[in-house]
């Protein structure tokens, strides 16, 4: 069994929410990059520091119940809301704030935005 570590993810400039502590587990080992265009550097850094398994959500399977965190680059409503709705910790690259029909699910405990690789620190 891999030896997982924790990271702290803080909001970036203009961002909202968090900080989140991300710790992969045997049941939830995946760091999902739901960003298109390959693995986002923020997802890669979280995986590198925690020992979690990074996957590209647009080319592999990223079931909600296997995710330690979802890294998204959503500037809209869809991805921003759907992962928090399923109680998956969500890191948005864009500096969004809760809005839209899913805003009720977006809480500081589940969501942090405006995140750059430097905002991810080992704890």
């Amino acid at each position: 069994m891999p030896d997982y570590k924790s990271v702290r993810v803080s909001k970036g400039r203009g961002g909202w929410g968090g900080p989140l502590t991300i710790t992969p587990t045997e049941d939830k080992p995946l760091i999902a990059s739901i960003t298109g265009g390959g693995i986002h550097p923020v997802a890669q850094r979280i995986a590198d520091l925690t020992g979690g398994e990074v996957i590209d959500g647009f080319s592999g399977s990223a079931p909600f119940d296997k995710l330690a965190v979802a890294v998204i680059d959503c500037g809209g409503t869809a991805r921003v809301g759907v992962y928090p709705m399923k109680k998956v910790k969500t890191v948005d690259i864009h500096a969004t704030s809760p809005a839209g029909p899913l805003a009720q699910f977006i809480t500081e405990e589940l969501f942090v935005s405006g995140v750059k690789p430097d905002d991810v620190e080992q704890t």
């Binding site: 999902a32 739901i34 959500g57 647009f58 080319s59 399977s61 990223a62 079931p63 909600f64 809209g76 409503t77 869809a78 991805r79 759907v82 992962y83 399923k86 839209g100 029909p101």
Partner: peptide, 24 residues
């Protein structure tokens, strides 16, 4: 249809994660 009630219509390509398909 529920999202239409909020004035919102979401599109995704078919290669998007299956977790997003219900709302898209």
């Amino acid at each position: 249809e529920a999202f239409l009630g909020h004035g919102l219509l979401i599109f995704f390509g078919a290669q998007s994660p299956v977790e997003l398909h219900d709302m898209s």
